[in-house]
């Protein structure tokens, strides 16, 4: 068993994340109702264990009589799609620039570094909102907005790591035996930075889930006919006293997902980071 699988954090994180992924994938089969099916006779039902709850609607219904649990499962689809796509996108964009900047140094590094500085000086949520206003709503645009806001996170952290690795003698040695720049980076530098990238990827997925929820909450996220946790929170706000689970269920879903990603990321960092591992053995 690889070392990273022996960490408790990684296992708990993986279980949580895989659970959410399973809900998203299996939504059509495990959801008790069609998430868009309205039943205006049973609106704002409380959860099944509360007085007045209905056994057919475990977590109650919303203002239009739609099943909260089913919507939760379908909402996981948007959350996971955005989390995976946006995090990978930000990683690709940020990492490529980080490898270029950290390896080449000089003016290339200067230009990329200053761009990151300027980019990071915008408050990220406001930047995302502005982008969404410009791009218009939709799943693809949410992903694009997150990539455009968060690539700097990858770029800045990874750049410094690349600079450290690139200064090692074995990288020089690879150049001296005739490796091209491309080969030097892919064979000698990238493998050494993979643990960091994997860790940041996992953390970024958690961030992407939160950002997507924020955007959907203010109505600038996915299209209004798609089901997203942020929208559910916005809808549930009004009926918080009659049917609190309209609000609490999506909040809990976000909480569990983000906690899963964070634990996974933290566990991976602790078990993959050579410096931390060496300190312990």
């Amino acid at each position: 068993m690889p070392r990273w699988l022996r960490s408790g954090r990684v296992i708990v994180g993986l279980v949580l994340v895989l659970g959410v992924v399973a809900c998203a994938l299996l939504a059509p089969w495990i959801a008790p109702h069609d998430p868009d099916e309205q039943n205006l006779l049973t609106t704002l039902l409380p959860a099944v264990w509360q007085p007045g709850g209905d056994a057919g609607y475990w977590l109650g219904t919303d203002g239009l009589g739609r099943d909260v649990l089913s919507r939760l499962f379908y909402g996981a689809r948007v959350a996971m799609t955005v989390a995976l796509a946006a995090a990978f996108g930000a990683m690709l964009f940020g990492c490529v620039l980080a490898y270029v900047a950290g390896y080449l140094g000089g003016w290339v590094d200067w230009v990329i570094g200053r761009t990151v500085d300027v980019w990071m000086s915008f408050p990220p949520v406001i930047l995302a909102l502005i982008l969404m206003t410009g791009l218009g709503t939709g799943e693809r645009n949410v992903i694009l907005a997150i990539v455009l806001v968060d690539w700097t996170r990858f770029c800045r952290v990874l750049r410094s790591e690349v600079m450290v690795v690139a200064r090692r003698d074995y990288v020089t040695a690879a150049r001296l035996v005739g490796f091209s720049h491309w080969r030097t980076v892919t064979r000698e530098i990238v493998p050494a930075t993979i643990p960091l990238v994997v860790t940041m990827l996992s953390l970024e997925m958690g961030i992407a889930v939160v950002v997507e929820a924020i955007l959907s909450f203010v109505g600038l996220g996915v299209r209004s006919d798609q089901i997203a946790w942020g929208q559910m929170i916005a809808d549930g706000r009004e009926a918080i006293f009659q049917a609190p689970w309209n609000l609490l269920a999506p909040v809990a879903a976000i909480f569990v997902t983000v906690a899963g990603f964070n634990m996974l990321g933290d566990g991976l960092r602790r078990s993959l980071d050579v410096r931390l591992v060496e300190g312990r053995e």
């Binding site: 090692r168 003698d169 074995y170 020089t172 040695a173 690879a174 001296l176 035996v177 000698e188 493998p191 050494a192």
Partner: peptide, 12 residues
Amino acid sequence: QMVFQDPQSALN
């Protein structure tokens, strides 16, 4: 060709 001082850092 070059041989480096610190064999630790010179080998991937």
